[in-house]
């Protein structure tokens, strides 16, 4: 699973971010029912130019392919970096320039 889509747009000094992650978000019980391996994202951290602007610890009870919307004070041209960690400890990072 190596996918995330990030959209970041600045308006009046506020950057609105939409981030979609590809994950089954299957917790233990659900994985057993579907006979698949349990897999879910445990943490998402967003950094703007190195400063943490958004951070969430998640569980398997978020919807499949979780979508997060959030905003923070920033400007166009900033570098937004989002890192996810899954239950197996695997991390993925993707960067996007704020438009």
């Amino acid at each position: 699973m190596a996918n995330m889509k990030i959209k970041a747009k600045e308006k009046d000094g506020v950057v609105g971010v939409k981030a979609m992650f590809t994950s089954l978000m299957a917790d233990k019980e659900e994985a057993e029912k579907k006979k698949i391996a349990s897999e879910f994202i445990t943490q998402i951290v967003a950094k703007n130019n190195g400063n943490v602007v958004f951070e969430v610890t998640t569980s398997g009870f978020m919807a499949e392919n979780p979508l997060f919307k959030f905003s923070y004070k920033g400007k166009a041209g900033d570098k937004l970096e989002i890192t996810t960690t899954d239950n197996g400890g695997k991390t993925e990072t993707e960067t996007e320039v704020v438009k």
Binding site: V52, V53, E55, V56, T57, T58, S59, F61, A63, K73
Partner: peptide, 20 residues
């Protein structure tokens, strides 16, 4: 427990997400 947000200083609290 479904999710826990950590809020950095001076952040805008405006989150949208989906749960099961």
């Amino acid at each position: 427990t479904t999710a826990v947000f950590t809020i950095p200083k001076d952040a805008i609290i405006d989150y949208e997400f989906r749960i099961k």
